[in-house]
């Protein structure tokens, strides 16, 4: 028996909206500790990793570990039927479920929707993600980072990110010209302006903006984002989800020939 009830169902809707352009089908692994999901994009350039802790759910029960193979496109069709203020419950009684039940309830419990989504059997291609002690970590407004990526992608499809003790520089070079945006440490008490740099070792890495713009669809999940980098490592972009877990995106760098 597996049942997970999320008080703020809108969070689940936002998570699916954040990843639906990146991955087509995913395995959600349910265990006693919560839900986890890991999937690569079709080009195997990016990887998304979701972890939702059981104590972030209103109700959570998972008698034995199960894997739920979902089509993201079909899942988002079902979630379109959930209101932003609804609770969302996922449920199945079977051990090898062929479908997953969804219940959407409004606040007054005066409207209850029930859907059943057919499950897919997907080969689990899970990768080992080593715990990395990143040498450059940037915490900043997710809206601001999203804006920087959008603006720079009109000049080039590649961005170079260079960190130093007191600032991070996003540079682009394209046919029309070049540009850079330098953001300094800023302990402002305004969220949108605050920038926290923890630079043990400066890095200079290059990434495809197309992927960063897709990751930034997760801005509605958290007002801050963290960029985690080490030389010769994929960038890790993390959106923490209050009291529930985190949505992480990993992006392999572009190496100059």
């Amino acid at each position: 028996m597996f049942e997970a009830k999320l008080q703020q169902g809108v969070i689940f809707k936002k998570i699916v909206d954040a990843i639906k352009d990146l991955v087509k089908s995913v395995n959600i692994d349910a265990s006693t500790s919560g839900l986890s999901m890991q999937a690569m994009d079709s080009a195997h350039v990016a990887l998304v990793s979701l972890k939702l802790n059981e104590n972030g759910f209103k109700d959570y029960r998972c008698d034995r570990p199960i894997t739920l193979g979902l089509s993201i496109e079909n899942l988002s069709k079902i979630l379109k039927c959930a209101g932003n203020d609804d609770t969302i419950t996922l449920q199945t009684d079977e051990e090898e479920p062929s479908s997953l039940k969804f219940f959407f309830e409004n606040q007054q419990a005066s409207k209850i929707s029930e859907f059943s989504l057919n499950l897919m059997s997907l080969d689990s291609e899970s990768l080992g993600i080593p715990d990395t002690d990143y040498s450059s970590v940037i915490q900043m407004s997710s809206a601001e980072f999203s804006r920087i990526c959008k603006e720079l992608s009109s000049i080039s499809e590649t961005v170079e990110i260079e960190t130093s003790k007191e600032s991070v520089k996003f540079s682009v070079q394209g046919d029309i010209g070049a540009g850079s945006i330098t953001v300094k440490n800023n302990q402002s008490d305004k969220d949108v302006d605050r920038v926290d740099l923890q630079i043990d070792q400066p890095v200079k890495l290059t990434f495809a903006l197309r992927y960063l713009n897709m990751f930034n669809k997760a801005v509605s999940l958290s007002s801050t984002v963290s960029l985690n980098m080490s030389e010769e490592n994929p960038l890790m972009v993390e959106y923490k989800i209050d009291d529930l877990g985190s949505l992480r995106f990993y992006l392999a760098p572009k190496i100059s020939d």
């Binding site: 350039v45 080992g128 994929p234 572009k254 100059s256």
Partner: peptide, 14 residues
């Protein structure tokens, strides 16, 4: 010019 690496260059299949 630069070459896009794959995520599987860095993370091993389990």
């Amino acid at each position: 010019k630069s070459t896009q690496k794959n995520i599987t260059n860095y993370f091993q299949k389990q």
